[in-house]
Amino acid sequence: MSSTGTFTPAPGAAPLARQVLAQAGMETKLLLRNGEQLLLAVVIPLLVLVGAVRGAPRLDLDSPHTSIDVLTPGVLALAVMSTAFTSLAIATGFERRYGVLKRLGTAPLSRSALLGGKVGALLCVEVLQFLVIGVVGLLLGWSPDLSVVGVLLAVLLGTGAFAGLGMLLAGTLRAEATLAGANLVYLLLLAGGAVVLPAEAYGGLGDVVSWLPSGALGEAMRTACEGSVPGRDLLILAAWAVAGTAAAARWFRWE
Protein backbone atom coordinates (compact mmCIF):
# COMPACT_ATOMS: atom_id res chain seq x y z
CA MET A 1 0.00 0.00 0.00
CA SER A 2 1.51 3.30 -1.01
CA SER A 3 1.28 6.08 1.53
CA THR A 4 1.27 8.87 -1.01
CA GLY A 5 -1.32 7.71 -3.51
CA THR A 6 -4.02 10.06 -4.71
CA PHE A 7 -6.73 7.90 -3.22
CA THR A 8 -4.99 6.71 -0.05
CA PRO A 9 -7.85 6.59 2.45
CA ALA A 10 -8.20 9.48 4.88
CA PRO A 11 -11.91 9.43 5.63
CA GLY A 12 -13.72 11.80 7.91
CA ALA A 13 -16.66 14.17 8.08
CA ALA A 14 -16.07 17.89 8.18
CA PRO A 15 -16.87 19.56 11.55
CA LEU A 16 -20.59 20.20 12.02
CA ALA A 17 -20.25 23.99 11.77
CA ARG A 18 -18.45 23.74 8.43
CA GLN A 19 -21.07 21.35 7.08
CA VAL A 20 -23.92 23.64 8.17
CA LEU A 21 -22.23 26.64 6.55
CA ALA A 22 -21.53 24.75 3.33
CA GLN A 23 -25.08 23.43 3.16
CA ALA A 24 -26.65 26.81 3.95
CA GLY A 25 -24.52 28.52 1.31
CA MET A 26 -25.34 25.94 -1.32
CA GLU A 27 -29.07 25.96 -0.61
CA THR A 28 -29.19 29.78 -0.64
CA LYS A 29 -27.40 29.85 -3.97
CA LEU A 30 -29.77 27.30 -5.49
CA LEU A 31 -32.87 29.06 -4.15
CA LEU A 32 -31.76 32.38 -5.62
CA ARG A 33 -30.84 30.76 -8.93
CA ASN A 34 -34.27 29.25 -9.37
CA GLY A 35 -36.57 31.64 -11.23
CA GLU A 36 -39.83 30.28 -9.82
CA GLN A 37 -38.51 30.47 -6.27
CA LEU A 38 -37.38 34.04 -6.82
CA LEU A 39 -40.82 34.90 -8.14
CA LEU A 40 -42.34 33.51 -4.98
CA ALA A 41 -39.76 35.08 -2.69
CA VAL A 42 -39.60 38.63 -3.99
CA VAL A 43 -41.73 39.38 -7.03
CA ILE A 44 -45.11 38.27 -5.71
CA PRO A 45 -44.73 40.02 -2.30
CA LEU A 46 -43.66 43.23 -4.08
CA LEU A 47 -46.61 43.02 -6.48
CA VAL A 48 -48.96 42.54 -3.53
CA LEU A 49 -47.46 45.53 -1.72
CA VAL A 50 -47.41 47.94 -4.66
CA GLY A 51 -50.73 46.68 -6.00
CA ALA A 52 -52.52 47.07 -2.67
CA VAL A 53 -51.08 50.51 -1.95
CA ARG A 54 -51.73 51.86 -5.44
CA GLY A 55 -54.93 50.00 -6.12
CA ALA A 56 -56.79 50.52 -2.85
CA PRO A 57 -57.65 54.22 -3.31
CA ARG A 58 -58.76 53.65 -6.91
CA LEU A 59 -61.05 50.85 -5.83
CA ASP A 60 -62.32 53.18 -3.13
CA LEU A 61 -61.02 50.80 -0.47
CA ASP A 62 -59.34 53.54 1.48
CA SER A 63 -59.91 51.75 4.75
CA PRO A 64 -57.41 51.74 7.65
CA HIS A 65 -56.54 48.16 6.60
CA THR A 66 -54.91 49.23 3.36
CA SER A 67 -52.55 51.92 4.58
CA ILE A 68 -48.87 51.38 3.87
CA ASP A 69 -48.09 51.04 7.61
CA VAL A 70 -50.44 48.07 7.86
CA LEU A 71 -49.59 46.50 4.50
CA THR A 72 -45.79 46.53 4.69
CA PRO A 73 -45.53 44.37 7.83
CA GLY A 74 -48.16 42.09 6.32
CA VAL A 75 -46.12 41.68 3.15
CA LEU A 76 -43.01 40.96 5.24
CA ALA A 77 -45.01 38.21 6.94
CA LEU A 78 -46.07 36.94 3.51
CA ALA A 79 -42.40 36.85 2.47
CA VAL A 80 -41.53 34.70 5.48
CA MET A 81 -44.40 32.37 4.64
CA SER A 82 -43.42 32.06 0.99
CA THR A 83 -39.82 31.17 1.82
CA ALA A 84 -40.17 29.08 4.96
CA PHE A 85 -43.21 27.18 3.76
CA THR A 86 -43.67 27.11 0.00
CA SER A 87 -40.09 27.38 -1.24
CA LEU A 88 -38.78 25.02 1.41
CA ALA A 89 -41.47 22.42 0.78
CA ILE A 90 -41.02 22.44 -2.99
CA ALA A 91 -37.23 22.34 -2.84
CA THR A 92 -37.21 19.55 -0.26
CA GLY A 93 -39.82 17.56 -2.15
CA PHE A 94 -37.63 17.55 -5.24
CA GLU A 95 -34.52 16.79 -3.18
CA ARG A 96 -36.27 13.64 -2.04
CA ARG A 97 -37.35 12.81 -5.58
CA TYR A 98 -33.88 13.24 -7.10
CA GLY A 99 -32.08 11.30 -4.38
CA VAL A 100 -30.21 14.37 -3.10
CA LEU A 101 -31.05 13.60 0.51
CA LYS A 102 -30.08 9.97 -0.02
CA ARG A 103 -26.78 11.02 -1.59
CA LEU A 104 -25.91 13.63 1.04
CA GLY A 105 -26.76 11.17 3.82
CA THR A 106 -23.69 9.16 2.91
CA ALA A 107 -21.70 12.26 1.93
CA PRO A 108 -21.75 12.33 5.07
CA LEU A 109 -24.20 15.06 6.07
CA SER A 110 -26.00 14.41 9.34
CA ARG A 111 -29.68 15.20 9.70
CA SER A 112 -28.92 18.00 12.14
CA ALA A 113 -26.43 19.55 9.70
CA LEU A 114 -28.97 19.26 6.89
CA LEU A 115 -31.67 20.96 8.95
CA GLY A 116 -29.22 23.58 10.20
CA GLY A 117 -28.24 24.28 6.61
CA LYS A 118 -31.84 24.65 5.55
CA VAL A 119 -32.66 27.05 8.37
CA GLY A 120 -29.53 29.05 7.52
CA ALA A 121 -30.56 29.27 3.87
CA LEU A 122 -34.10 30.37 4.81
CA LEU A 123 -32.74 33.12 7.04
CA CYS A 124 -30.35 34.33 4.31
CA VAL A 125 -33.16 34.56 1.80
CA GLU A 126 -35.42 36.27 4.35
CA VAL A 127 -32.79 38.93 5.04
CA LEU A 128 -32.68 39.69 1.29
CA GLN A 129 -36.47 39.76 1.11
CA PHE A 130 -36.71 42.13 4.08
CA LEU A 131 -34.15 44.46 2.52
CA VAL A 132 -35.98 44.66 -0.80
CA ILE A 133 -39.50 44.87 0.64
CA GLY A 134 -38.41 47.23 3.41
CA VAL A 135 -36.79 49.66 0.97
CA VAL A 136 -39.80 49.61 -1.38
CA GLY A 137 -42.11 50.10 1.63
CA LEU A 138 -40.07 53.09 2.84
CA LEU A 139 -40.13 54.58 -0.67
CA LEU A 140 -43.92 54.26 -0.63
CA GLY A 141 -44.09 56.12 2.66
CA TRP A 142 -43.91 53.42 5.32
CA SER A 143 -42.90 54.86 8.68
CA PRO A 144 -42.48 52.01 11.15
CA ASP A 145 -41.79 52.19 14.86
CA LEU A 146 -39.85 48.93 15.04
CA SER A 147 -39.58 46.69 18.05
CA VAL A 148 -36.42 44.92 16.90
CA VAL A 149 -36.90 42.12 19.43
CA GLY A 150 -40.50 41.71 18.34
CA VAL A 151 -39.57 41.55 14.64
CA LEU A 152 -36.73 39.08 15.24
CA LEU A 153 -38.91 36.81 17.36
CA ALA A 154 -41.74 36.99 14.84
CA VAL A 155 -39.38 36.06 11.98
CA LEU A 156 -37.70 33.22 13.89
CA LEU A 157 -40.87 31.69 15.31
CA GLY A 158 -42.77 32.26 12.06
CA THR A 159 -39.97 30.57 10.14
CA GLY A 160 -39.99 27.70 12.63
CA ALA A 161 -43.75 27.26 12.38
CA PHE A 162 -43.89 27.32 8.58
CA ALA A 163 -40.70 25.33 8.07
CA GLY A 164 -42.05 22.51 10.26
CA LEU A 165 -45.26 22.40 8.22
CA GLY A 166 -43.36 22.67 4.93
CA MET A 167 -41.10 19.77 5.85
CA LEU A 168 -44.13 17.73 6.92
CA LEU A 169 -45.71 18.29 3.51
CA ALA A 170 -42.49 17.58 1.59
CA GLY A 171 -41.62 14.52 3.64
CA THR A 172 -44.93 12.74 3.22
CA LEU A 173 -46.16 13.54 -0.31
CA ARG A 174 -44.72 12.97 -3.77
CA ALA A 175 -42.78 15.90 -5.25
CA GLU A 176 -45.58 16.90 -7.66
CA ALA A 177 -48.22 16.75 -4.92
CA THR A 178 -45.96 18.84 -2.69
CA LEU A 179 -45.55 21.41 -5.46
CA ALA A 180 -49.31 21.66 -5.97
CA GLY A 181 -50.14 21.54 -2.25
CA ALA A 182 -47.57 24.12 -1.19
CA ASN A 183 -48.74 26.59 -3.84
CA LEU A 184 -52.41 26.01 -3.06
CA VAL A 185 -51.97 26.52 0.68
CA TYR A 186 -49.91 29.65 -0.05
CA LEU A 187 -52.67 31.12 -2.22
CA LEU A 188 -55.40 30.24 0.28
CA LEU A 189 -53.49 31.79 3.17
CA LEU A 190 -52.59 34.84 1.07
CA ALA A 191 -56.26 35.42 0.34
CA GLY A 192 -57.89 34.35 3.58
CA GLY A 193 -55.21 33.78 6.19
CA ALA A 194 -54.89 37.27 7.67
CA VAL A 195 -51.30 37.50 6.64
CA VAL A 196 -51.32 40.68 4.52
CA LEU A 197 -54.59 42.13 5.79
CA PRO A 198 -55.21 42.25 9.54
CA ALA A 199 -57.49 39.69 11.15
CA GLU A 200 -60.17 42.25 11.94
CA ALA A 201 -60.60 42.84 8.20
CA TYR A 202 -62.16 39.38 8.04
CA GLY A 203 -65.06 40.34 10.28
CA GLY A 204 -66.46 37.40 12.22
CA LEU A 205 -63.79 35.05 10.87
CA GLY A 206 -61.07 37.22 12.39
CA ASP A 207 -61.03 35.25 15.64
CA VAL A 208 -60.51 32.02 13.79
CA VAL A 209 -57.83 33.16 11.33
CA SER A 210 -55.72 34.76 14.04
CA TRP A 211 -55.07 31.25 15.36
CA LEU A 212 -53.65 30.15 12.02
CA PRO A 213 -49.86 30.42 11.65
CA SER A 214 -50.45 32.93 8.85
CA GLY A 215 -52.74 35.10 10.98
CA ALA A 216 -50.46 34.88 14.00
CA LEU A 217 -47.40 35.80 11.94
CA GLY A 218 -49.20 38.70 10.23
CA GLU A 219 -50.49 40.05 13.54
CA ALA A 220 -47.09 39.57 15.20
CA MET A 221 -45.32 41.47 12.43
CA ARG A 222 -47.82 44.32 12.44
CA THR A 223 -47.63 44.67 16.24
CA ALA A 224 -43.81 44.50 16.20
CA CYS A 225 -43.69 47.22 13.53
CA GLU A 226 -45.75 49.44 15.83
CA GLY A 227 -43.23 49.14 18.62
CA SER A 228 -44.52 46.36 20.88
CA VAL A 229 -43.69 42.70 21.43
CA PRO A 230 -46.70 40.61 20.37
CA GLY A 231 -46.83 38.05 23.17
CA ARG A 232 -50.02 36.18 22.26
CA ASP A 233 -49.16 35.80 18.58
CA LEU A 234 -45.62 34.68 19.34
CA LEU A 235 -47.00 31.98 21.63
CA ILE A 236 -49.33 30.77 18.89
CA LEU A 237 -46.41 30.64 16.44
CA ALA A 238 -44.28 28.76 18.97
CA ALA A 239 -47.05 26.20 19.41
CA TRP A 240 -47.30 25.72 15.63
CA ALA A 241 -43.52 25.41 15.40
CA VAL A 242 -43.46 22.68 18.05
CA ALA A 243 -46.41 20.80 16.55
CA GLY A 244 -45.16 21.08 12.95
CA THR A 245 -41.61 20.07 13.78
CA ALA A 246 -42.74 17.12 15.89
CA ALA A 247 -45.06 15.91 13.14
CA ALA A 248 -42.34 16.32 10.50
CA ALA A 249 -39.83 14.46 12.67
CA ARG A 250 -42.38 11.68 13.13
CA TRP A 251 -43.57 11.25 9.53
CA PHE A 252 -40.81 12.61 7.29
CA ARG A 253 -39.58 9.94 4.87
CA TRP A 254 -36.12 10.55 3.45
CA GLU A 255 -36.73 8.69 0.23
Binding site: P11, A13, L30, G99, R103, T106
Partner: peptide, 19 residues
Protein backbone atom coordinates in the same frame (compact mmCIF):
# COMPACT_ATOMS: atom_id res chain seq x y z
CA UNK B 1 -22.62 8.07 11.90
CA UNK B 2 -19.34 6.27 12.42
CA UNK B 3 -19.56 4.34 9.18
CA UNK B 4 -20.76 6.96 6.69
CA UNK B 5 -17.57 9.04 6.53
CA UNK B 6 -15.56 5.89 5.84
CA UNK B 7 -17.46 4.71 2.78
CA UNK B 8 -18.04 6.23 -0.63
CA UNK B 9 -21.28 5.56 -2.44
CA UNK B 10 -22.08 5.89 -6.10
CA UNK B 11 -25.81 5.63 -6.70
CA UNK B 12 -27.18 4.17 -9.89
CA UNK B 13 -28.85 7.47 -10.72
CA UNK B 14 -29.64 10.89 -9.31
CA UNK B 15 -28.13 12.28 -6.17
CA UNK B 16 -27.72 15.91 -7.19
CA UNK B 17 -29.94 18.99 -7.27
CA UNK B 18 -31.51 19.46 -10.68
CA UNK B 19 -30.17 23.00 -11.05
Amino acid sequence: RALMPRIGVMLQSGGAWSG
